[in-house]
Structure formats: C-alpha cells, structure tokens
Simulated assay, not measured.
Amino acid sequence: MLKYFISAIIILACLFSGKLISYTFNLVFPSAIFGMLILFTLLMTGVVKHHTVLPCSAPLLKSMPLLFIPTLVGIIEHLGLLKDNLITISISVIASCIITLAVVGLIFQKLNKSTS
C-alpha cells in the first residue's frame, strides 16, 4: 500500500510543480506537459527510479485509450466538415510538414557549420 502512496505522491508532485511553473510565469503552454517534463527529467537523471512510479503509472497507462474517446467523437461529429475541406486540410498538413523539415534542416546545417 505504501508503494502506491509514494508513487502517487511523486506523480502528483510533478504535476503540481508543472502547474506552479505555468501559473507563476503566466504561460499558455499546458501545465501537465511541464509536469511530464519534470517527471521525465527526474527519471532520466536517476533521482526517481522507474520502479518507484510504476505502481500508479501502470494502471494509468492501461486506461489511456479512454482519454482519446472525446477527440474521436468530435472528429465523427464534424466528419462532413472534414470531408468538405479534405483537399485544403491535406495541402496545409503536407505544406507545414515540408516547411518544418526545411527550417529544421537549415537550422541544423547552420549550427553544424558553426561547431565544426
């Protein structure tokens, strides 16, 4: 029972820290993402061991697909709108991917030249 309590405390402390950072700096970035980054950093540095957070994280990961149901319902509700604008959406997705790849490639080349 104690291992579940410690696991929950660590996960909730990371979430609270993320919310505190988001609130303190008035950021529009989701605070849960900051919490996950904090937990990830703690796990990668070895401050928190994997087996310590496993008791609470395993059940959460098993039920994670349930969190995608509202998104899928929203997509199904707007299926007609998506079908009407399929070409526009496809072009914008492909163009944004190409632009992103080009910009990242150019930045990498510039940074790679300066370090060589």
Rank of each mutant, 00 (worst) to 15 (best):
G105A: 15
V48C: 04
N26K: 15
K83F: 11
I94A: 15
L54F: 06
K110G: 06
N26D: 11
A58M: 10
E77S: 15
I10E: 05
P65W: 02
T52K: 03
K3P: 10
I98G: 00
S116M: 05
V104F: 07
T88I: 09
V47W: 05
Y4L: 10
H51G: 11
V28Q: 07
I94H: 02
L101F: 15
T115V: 14
C14E: 02
I87K: 14
K3Y: 08
N112V: 13
I21K: 03
H78W: 06
N112P: 03
I9K: 10
S7M: 02
K19M: 14
S92C: 14
L15A: 12
H51T: 12
S92F: 13
I21C: 04
V53D: 00
E77W: 10
K83V: 03
F16A: 15
P59Y: 04
A13K: 00
L15E: 07
G80E: 04
L54T: 12
E77F: 10
T24P: 04
F108M: 11
I10V: 11
Q109I: 09
F29L: 05
T71V: 13
P59F: 01
S116N: 14
S57P: 05
P55Y: 03
S31A: 15
Y4A: 06
L86C: 01
I91F: 15
D84S: 10
Y4T: 00
S92N: 15
H78E: 04
L86R: 12
A32T: 14
T115N: 09
K3S: 15
H50G: 14
G74S: 13
V103I: 15
G46M: 06
A13S: 10
A58Q: 08
P65S: 02
C56Y: 13
L43D: 02
L12P: 02
S31F: 02
I21H: 03
A102E: 03
N112E: 13
T45H: 00
N112T: 12
P65H: 02
G18C: 05
S116P: 12
L54D: 09
K3C: 04
G18A: 06
T24W: 13
F25S: 06
K3N: 12
K3F: 13
P55C: 06
M64H: 10
C14H: 01
A13Q: 01
G105F: 11
K110P: 03
M1A: 11
N85P: 01
L61M: 12
C97E: 07
S90T: 11
L86T: 10
S90P: 06
Y23Q: 15
I21W: 00
L60A: 09
T24E: 06
D84E: 11
V47Q: 00
L60Y: 07
I87D: 06
I107S: 06
I94P: 05
F29D: 03
F68D: 02
L67N: 07
I91Q: 05
P70E: 00
L15W: 09
V93R: 05
L82A: 04
I76Y: 11
I75K: 01
I6P: 05
I6E: 05
I89P: 02
I76P: 03
I6G: 01
I98T: 04
F16D: 07
M36Y: 08
K113W: 10
M64F: 14
I98C: 03
L39M: 08
S31D: 12
C97M: 15
L12V: 03
I76T: 08
V104P: 06
A13F: 10
T88C: 08
